[in-house]
Design a protein around this nucleic acid. Structure first.
Length: 431
RNA sequence: GCGAACGUGGUGAAGUGGUUAACACAUCUGGCUGUGAACCAGACACUCGUGAGUUCGAUUCUCAUCGUUCGCCCCA
């Protein structure tokens, strides 16, 4: 039979890698809880319009990267390419904003889907963890969210994270700037690349993102957002930067940082980390403030701020820097029955140790030879081998062998858990 | 969507236009059936990604296709 392979751009997570994901995800969740956030789980499937209206029809994500299809009821369904728009739909639909506990502080974790060309650090199905803080316009929420993301990265052991930050200004600033860009690029656009021509029509701001070298001179001489920022936007941005300095969070202003999702305004930021091997996976996380997203989805006009991490990229970076070593799941004991007639007894002992002692125990179930069992015990990383044969069944005892020191002694079944507690306590004290 | 490299067993990998496709690790069997990582002897690629072409003959050459990886674009 032919082997069926996974879909392009997807990947299986198992073994030690799964441990790494669990560790990273648990840490992210627990930091979010420290920051007073609550978990939410929006569905993977959303109406297409959630993203068209939410993320924006001029964004590349919506234009060419969404998994959209008709279901059997002729509905336009999209596999979420990001969380924010779906969460906002959830907030609006369930009127979660109707509370005196604003801002809402929500975190999420799960897979997202984008039809892109897979390459280093890029998948078609990947996992994101992120947060949304919705309801208050204070710049301090931007700061708090950045502080949380930074805490997560440093708690994972990443040193030297770069935070790139920029402001897109409020609506007024953006409109003024957009007009300025339009009239500037109108003179040059026919000499520029095809993508830029499209961007010119859809969202001139994105031209600034263009990487085509020939276009560079035009872009370098283009008007800069700073000259078009309203006073309040300027003030807001400088307050954010000030607060980051007070909190000793390092940042770099990057005025070319635009972000590909249309809903952002004011503060936007990205988290970059270059692993010690020098491999660049792109941003490990990114986010920003959004003003109009909720009203685009039919809700009241509450602003918000959020970020998301790409779990795959975070795990890759940790793996490269060897920050994942200490998470192997080894066995406390491996039970070795010597012959058919000891099997049941072996199983009883294993269940007893697991349920009453809380030890991680595996049993050899297929009656192989003793040599083979010892080999398995060490492959599985067991600390102790528990040997039970006919003699032990009759005496109701167990032989405990320390696989490192080779010491072994025999104990009665009823003393087994006590003995294990002793063994594990003394080995802890040594450490 | 565009550009490049690669595709040999469970894994890592050599190799050649021509009868049996190295080697290593892993696995299995036996020497060794109540005490282990050693050692010895064996076993282990019915399509060398798939399809077509060139050829007397192709795993080795050509083309296509699929896949993987990397770069561009864009993004987490």
């Amino acid at each position: 039979m032919e082997i069926i392979k996974n879909v392009k751009g997807t990947h299986d997570i198992y073994g030690e890698e799964n441990n790494a994901y669990e560790m990273v995800e648990n840490l992210m969740k627990s930091v979010a809880e420290l920051y007073a956030y609550h978990g939410v789980r929006p569905p993977v499937l959303e109406s297409n319009s959630v993203f068209v209206r939410g993320v924006g029809s001029s964004s590349d994500i919506v234009r060419k990267e969404m998994y959209t299809f008709k279901d059997h009821g002729d509905r336009d369904i999209t596999l979420r390419p990001e969380f924010t728009a779906g969460i906002m739909r959830m907030v609006v639909q369930n009127k979660l904003y109707a509370t005196n506990e604003l801002p809402l502080k929500l975190y999420y974790l799960g897979p997202v889907f984008r039809y892109e060309r897979p390459q280093l650090g890029r998948y078609r199905q990947f996992n994101q963890f992120g947060v949304e803080c919705i309801g208050h316009a204070s710049y301090m929420q931007d700061v708090d969210v950045i502080a949380m993301a930074y805490t997560i990265l440093t708690s994972l052991g990443l040193d030297g994270v770069t935070i790139k930050i920029n402001t897109l200004g409020d609506d007024e600033s953006r409109n003024n700037y957009r007009e300025a860009l339009k009239s500037y690029f109108a003179k040059h656009i026919r000499n520029m690349c095809e993508d830029c021509k499209t961007r010119f029509e859809l969202n001139p701001l994105r031209i600034l993102d263009c990487k085509v070298p020939e276009d560079r001179p035009y872009i370098d001489n283009a008007p800069v957002i700073n000259d078009y920022l309203s006073e309040s936007s300027k003030e807001r941005f400088s307050k954010v930067l000030n607060a980051l300095e007070t909190l000793q969070i390092p940042y770099e202003i990057d005025s070319s940082l635009v972000r590909g999702l249309d809903y952002y305004s004011e503060t936007v930021f990205e988290f970059h980390y270059k692993s010690k091997k020098g491999i660049d996976y792109g941003a490990v996380g990114a986010g920003g403030h959004y003003g109009k997203l909720m009203s685009e989805l039919g809700g009241p006009d509450y602003p918000g701020v959020g970020f998301s991490f790409g779990i795959e990229r975070v795990v890759s970076v940790l793996k490269d820097d060897e920050l994942l070593e200490n998470i192997k799941d080894e066995l406390d004991a491996y039970v070795m029955p010597l012959g058919e007639e000891s099997n049941l007894y072996a199983e009883e002992i294993a269940v007893f140790l697991r349920n009453s002692g809380g030890y991680r125990v595996d049993v050899c179930a297929d009656n192989c030879k003793m040599g083979a069992m010892f080999k398995r015990a060490s492959t599985k990383g067991a600390k102790y081998a528990l040997i039970v044969g006919e003699t032990e069944v009759n005496e109701q005892t167990v032989v405990i062998k320390d696989l490192q020191t080779q010491e072994q002694n025999k104990v009665k079944v009823e003393e087994l858990v006590t003995k294990f507690d002793e063994l594990f306590n003394s080995s802890k004290e040594e450490e």
